[in-house]
Simulated assay, not measured.
Amino acid sequence: MASRAPEKTLHVEVVTAERELYNGEATQVQAPGADGQLGILPGHAALLTFLTPGMLRIELGDAEAPLFVSGGFLEVANNRVTILADAAEHAEEIDRARAEEARQRAQQRLAEASNAEERAEYQAALERAVSRLHVLEFARRRTRRRLDVQGVHD
């Protein structure tokens, strides 16, 4: 019996409750999984995991699309990656001033937290703000071509 040729791409869909951010092919997806950074290539084994706040990178050949995700779920099945994000945005949608303000506010509140519950809440807010700034900085410095997602996030 002849074996099948390996797939060259996988289908990726990134959605939130409000909108679809990406629906198309990719040669690789890098995501912030609950147990660390995940790299997903065509033919990846089935997987279901939580996402943590961080950068989601969708790559197709020499192009890429960096996005911020605040958390959610990632599922891999049948050469498809489905990401159900709590919140997500393309790098170019991130407002630097707003993200920096959120980071400073979270740091201040964390310093003033009076109990473990408050500390956990403000630490999570700080991680989200820092992750958004990281995605923005990564996108600013990138040398790769921007993956065309025209029409998906307009």
Rank of each mutant, 00 (worst) to 15 (best):
A5G: 10
K8L: 10
T9D: 02
T9F: 01
L10P: 02
L10V: 13
L10H: 08
E13Y: 01
E13S: 12
R19P: 03
E25R: 13
A31D: 03
A31K: 01
G36C: 07
L38F: 01
L38M: 08
G43I: 13
G43R: 12
M55P: 03
L56V: 05
L56W: 00
G61Q: 11
G61E: 13
V69R: 04
S70R: 03
S70C: 04
G72L: 07
G72V: 08
A77N: 09
N78C: 02
N79H: 05
T82M: 03
T82E: 03
T82N: 07
A85M: 08
D86T: 11
A87C: 08
E89P: 05
H90E: 13
H90V: 14
D95R: 04
A97M: 06
A99Y: 10
E100D: 13
Q104T: 11
A113V: 09
E117Y: 15
E117M: 13
R119H: 05
Y122A: 15
A124F: 05
E127S: 10
A129T: 03
S131V: 05
H134G: 01
H134C: 00
E137V: 00
E137R: 14
A139W: 12
T143N: 09
R144I: 09
D148N: 15
V149S: 14
G151L: 07
H153C: 10
H153S: 14
H153T: 13
